[in-house]
Design a protein around this nucleic acid. Sequence first.
RNA 1: GCCCGAGUGGUGGAAUUGGUAGACACGCAGGACUUAAAAUCCUGUGGCCAUUGUGGCCGUGCGGGUUCAAGUCCCGCCUCGGGUACCA
Length: 936
Amino acid sequence: MDYNFKEIENKWQKFWNENKVYKVDVDKERPKFYVLDMFPYPSGAGLHVGHPLGYIASDIYSRYKRSNGFNVLHPMGYDAFGLPAEQYAIQTGQHPAITTEKNIKRYREQLDKIGFSYDWDREVRTSDPKYYKWTQWAFQQMFKHYYCNKDEKAKPIAELEEIFSKTGTEGLDVACTEKLEFTAEEWNSKSHKEQQEILLNYRLAYLADTMVNWCPALGTVLANDEIKDGVSIRGGHPVEQKKMRQWLLRVSAYAKRLLDGLETLEWTDSLKEIQRNWIGRSEGADMIFKVADSDVEMKIFTTRADTIFGVTFMVLAPESELVPQLTKPEHKEEVEAYLKETKKRTERERMSDVKKVTGVFTGSYAVNPLSGEKIPVWISDYVLAGYGTGAIMAVPAHDTRDFAFARHFDLPITQVVVPEGEDEPEVTFWEKGSECPWEDAKDSKAGYMINSDFLNGLSVPEAIEKTKEYIKEKGIGEVTVNYRLRDAIFSRQRYWGEPFPVYYKDGLPYMLDESELPLELPEVDKFLPTEDGDPPLGRAKNWVTKEGYPLELSTMPGFAGSSAYYLRYMDPHNDEALVSREANEYWQDVDLYIGGTEHATGHLIYSRYWNKFLYDIGVVVKDEPFRKLINQGMIQGRSNFVYRIKGTNKFVSYNLKKDYDVTPIHVDVNIVHNDILDIEAFRNWNPEYKDAEFILEDGKYVCGHAVEKMSKSMFNVVNPDDIIEQYGADTLRLYEMFLGPLEQSKPWDTQGIDGVHKFLRKTVKLFFDKDGKLIVTDEKATPDELRTLHRTIKKITSDIERFSFNTCVSAFMICVNELTDLKCHKREILEPLSVILAPFAPHLSEELWHALGHEGTVCDAQWPKWEEKFLIESTVTYPVSFNGKMRFKIDLPADMDTKAIEEAVLAHEQAKKWIGDKTVRKVIVVPRKIVNVVIG
RNA sequence: GCCCGAGUGGUGGAAUUGGUAGACACGCAGGACUUAAAAUCCUGUGGCCAUUGUGGCCGUGCGGGUUCAAGUCCCGCCUCGGGUACCA
């Protein structure tokens, strides 16, 4: 029978749909399993062949789990707010909701063709008011909570107000923007407005004046993870620093828990490492340096307090609040000029000339708390205001940046660590006027201390310990931990996002009442900023509350809607809560999450933060949202080239091009087969090539190729619809898996797809003859057939468990090849085979399952168990090596003991040849594996 | 610079705890069927040498090491990919 995949796939997709085969509900009788795909942004280009890779893998795993008796939640939805639809709206005037709807429709059509087991009744869209009601709600909850460091937990802001009114900030240990100090009396005597201003310092969602990444081309602020190399990831536009009043989320409050939580997760080490680096924990000390002839104190953060005797100057960030206090009148002009200069430099410029050393002296001197020495205080933009305290102690002998700065401004250098493996040099101090003995800062991770008073002779770790103790004792500092993780800027000056449920009264923000949620996105005449530079929402009519108070004009960023979508899938139609207690207690968390690694520092940090907050306020039962996470690799494009001889319309074949001066030109991969150009199709492809001439080799035009990003401009986009049209969805599914390990990036090359398609046809042939008649018999299976089947069940089961889907496909091919050779058409073998094939090729398996006489879906068939008894063989073929080199094979009984094996091997005719006149020194026998004879 | 990860035939890749390197597929070559082509089926296919046949040597980025045995473990390098970058 012909393998009529079109008919089969249409038939069963219809069946699944009509019978709601993939609908799931809470079922306390069965264990749950939650498999999630990172939901897509529905772009105008539609899906290419790289997108479904992860979806196919998760679908296989979902079906496998279902067959093993689990109640599997496997939903899909759309991350529907976003810049491209809005940029398109700006250009064309078409409302982004319309564009988005259209794109979603196309995505859905494409997804449906692949045969996924999604429960579409649970679909969510982040741009749906019913959905974003809960995004807005969560934001309001963050506004209403603060973070208590002692209990490591979010708490209601009302509790903080009570603390303030009773004891002020005395003994307070909470997350805040700025450390404030006031008494209860002071708090109680403040006006309501003043109190509200102060509370913003503590709220988890707060409004603050902050330096932001402003992208003029997009007209909006961007978060750190939305920028790379100083330009926006979306569109590649330049970004500059600007101070603006913005909403922020106090993600930094959760830094410790976000870091510690990683230990409990089954994520790849590399992904955990990326998150660890992003969170950036460093242990060190805050130390106080007094300023000479002044009451001012400088607080600095250092991880190397032990090098304090090597400090020869101090540096402040230009933005530091201490700058005006420490600038002496005679240096004022110079300092102000420098500050003006640094402000002008955008982030991008700062990056492009990293090596350029700039700075200015304040005129002040600080006093080293240990040595009592007076050292100059400088200002330089190599010190960041946002990290630590915005001030450092400089140890030029052991820090590259400090060293460069010292050399540039001729500041003295004192070596305090002799690195491991080096001898103590004669000269350990340098100052202006003599030749500098060093070319660069010396490594100081390991070694011993010199020029350091009571630390002299100690090893580096000992010295760190001793200094910490010392500064604690003397009260000149405290041991602290610093995190690199910044609070997330949460405002975007754009239209197509969630409106903030916020209004303003007397310049202060207030939350709308929960009953007024969702606050729906208003209509605007244009999707551009207003003439006054307000965001697009400034164009909306009546964008005010019932009482007439103005509403917030910014909208929320992309990560807002994706931060809790996995919770909403558990209970997608609930109007009373983000997720009901019952649904959340049943589904708990995501057991398996599959998606791209590009979300490592964005979505995967924010949603962990979001989830932890919801956990703190009792909305969800799990502290971490994604227990196991797999990053699927990228599918790259495989481009093809033709070579045009310069100045002509003549093209020369790949292996002949070296004799000509040619320009390589991308050619559509869809008109190239196995690197051979379809010349007719090429002439029709572009009018420019209508009259093209060719220099052929062996009568063919051979194209060149290269692996590049899959994109329209490279003409290497392969559309899953085209593959399905030609080979069917089951072939597409198998081939995507067959390409290689899931986590690995690999180029898409349609060559080779024939192999898996042939495999499916061969499978069909085990069931039907060439007239389409079922030839399956009820005959008893032979040991060989049973061994093939059970070996395959074992291999497939264990390979699915370790997400090795490519080897599964090979195992199926081996199985079908063997059964074909055995001419096996027995139900006893073929029925279990159709069940284990179902996760990979669900359409064909469903067809075969029904052909075998079953009524219900193959999805609910019990996963077969392999039995070891069928795998046992009576003889083992031992490879026999001599000095580690395999020379011949010998068949021996499986239960033969070591001694007998040794004798049998040595008695073998071939063994004599290899031993020759040499002596047998040793014989190693690994039962059922190998024999190695050591001769010499 | 720092931190991860990876280098295996012409190609994608396999080898799960150190135990027959190259499974499975693509491609290529030869053959069968066919008027022909497509499809299908069969055979061969890491390199080098030798050959009537049996065969031999080399071989998992490079150089060392551990081991009876190394693609797999250890040390040093090279190349590519990813992350991050004035983070004190």
